[in-house]
């Protein structure tokens, strides 16, 4: 735990133009005071916020992120905030999975008339993040970065995007056969898929700028060697990785093409 007195967390807010940004303005008009840590990026709708961008913010070292939209039913674009909610809930589970405290990300609703609520919410959140300490308290910097990069790549991947963004429709209207999809079951499937996708990207990132054997990859990523091997074989077929050289009996792998990294 770091020195709470001197820790000034970096807090980033994404606020939608129509409700929450207006609520933040109202806090000002009413002179409700709150901590100075928040920096705001205005978006037209909370639905604009891509989970990948939130991960980027963490990669750049932001300690806490707050995403605020209009109350359910009030989104200026009707349904934007429903997507926000589902995307960010998913992102919270991903953060939890990779060892970043999910409380570092909150999603909430603030209407244009809730100036005081906005000030209180920011006050409470800032306090919470001070309590949690800097982001680097969660994981050592290098490991943190690699995990966040892998999570970002996983969430950018096509199948994940479909799962996350169809959630609303699937759970509300049922699948193509009109059958109601069970919520718990859906989340389990989604989480499994995310975990697999993350694993794959975690492995890829471990061999982005070095060549490693299965054993070595297993060691750095803490993924069982069997799983590492299965992943590598599949990725080799897709042309994502290649055997760079063979050390004795141990093939060493390297990423092909290289992912975009920062």
């Amino acid at each position: 735990m770091s020195d709470q007195e001197s820790f000034e967390p970096h807090i980033l807010g994404f606020l939608c133009n129509w409700c929450s940004y207006a609520g933040a303005d109202l806090a000002g008009v009413s002179r409700f005071q709150y901590p100075t840590n928040l920096r705001v990026i205005r978006v037209m709708c909370s639905g604009r916020v891509d989970p990948a961008l939130v991960l980027d913010a963490l990669i750049w070292g932001i300690d806490g992120i707050v995403i605020l939209g209009c109350h359910p039913g009030d989104c200026h674009y009707l349904t934007g905030n429903y997507y926000t909610e589902r995307r960010m809930r998913t992102l919270q589970t991903v953060l939890d999975m990779i060892g970043v405290k999910p409380e570092r990300l909150i999603v909430d609703w603030v209407s244009a008339s809730e100036g005081e609520r906005f000030a209180n919410l920011i006050g409470d959140f800032t306090e919470k993040i001070v309590e949690l300490g800097p982001l680097t308290d969660d994981l050592p910097p290098e490991e943190l970065r690699t995990r966040l990069l892998a999570a970002r790549d996983a969430l950018s991947q096509q199948r994940m995007r479909w799962l996350v963004n169809r959630e609303k429709e699937l759970l509300e209207k049922g699948d193509v056969f009109g059958e109601q999809v069970d919520e718990a079951e859906f989340h389990e499937v989604k989480f499994e898929a995310l975990a697999r996708e993350y694993e794959k990207n975690r492995i890829l990132h471990s061999i982005s700028d070095q060549v490693l054997s299965v054993q070595e990859i297993a060691k750095t990523t803490a993924i069982p060697p069997r799983e590492v091997l299965k992943n590598l074989i599949a990725m080799e077929q897709k042309g994502l990785v290649t055997v760079s050289r063979i050390d004795g009996v141990n093939p060493k792998y390297r990423r092909l093409g290289g992912g975009e990294s920062l």
């Binding site: 978006v43 037209m44 709708c45 639905g47 604009r48 916020v49 891509d50 989970p51 961008l53 200026h76 674009y77 349904t79 934007g80 997507y83 995307r87 950018s156 991947q157 096509q158 994940m160 995007r161 479909w162 996350v164 963004n165």
Partner: peptide
Amino acid sequence: GCGTCGAACPQKAITMRHF
């Protein structure tokens, strides 16, 4: 211009003008 589509596109093929 809400941008909800832009935050979903798996190809990052959608540009949200001005955002």
